[in-house]
């Protein structure tokens, strides 16, 4: 015979248990989440002296599945080194997969714990090299 009561009771038990547990929801923004160290938030570029560490190898724009990174290379007129004269991420298109970080051969791009990316205008989601590079 089919027991109608027992699943019902089991379900209610779980519900009642949860009534007395600590809630998982956070009272954002007054409460802040603890973000794990390998969290994939907004990108940042490591700094090397007076510019970002990016050498404009084009591996991240190549690997990026969302095609949201734009890099342009330039030659330093004195040292002849290659550097990124432009490094833009259109964060609206980014899927935060982290491939760019994985592809970078010189450890220039990383992902931070910053997840608070809301903004008012579309343009404000276009992150430039200047915005992304670690401050001195």
């Amino acid at each position: 015979m089919l027991n109608v009561a027992s699943p019902l009771i089991n379900g209610l038990k779980i519900t009642l248990q949860h009534l007395f547990k600590k809630p998982v929801t956070l009272q954002y923004p007054t409460e802040r989440p603890v973000v794990g160290p390998r969290f994939r938030g907004l990108h940042a570029l490591n700094r090397f002296h007076d510019r970002s560490k990016c050498v404009a190898c084009y591996l991240c724009p190549t690997v990026c599945p969302a095609k949201c990174i734009t890099v342009e290379a330039a030659e330093d007129p004195i040292t002849h080194e290659k550097y990124a004269s432009r490094y833009d991420i259109d964060i609206l298109r980014c899927i935060f997969c982290g491939y760019c970080v994985e592809a970078c051969p010189v450890d220039a791009v990383k992902m931070t714990e910053n997840f608070e990316l809301a903004n008012y205008k579309r343009e404000d989601f276009a992150y430039t090299q200047e915005m992304l590079t670690d401050k001195k």
Partner: peptide, 9 residues
């Protein structure tokens, strides 16, 4: 052509 583009792109 130096640094203008990657071959594969």
């Amino acid at each position: 052509f130096k640094f203008k583009a990657r071959w594969w792109s």
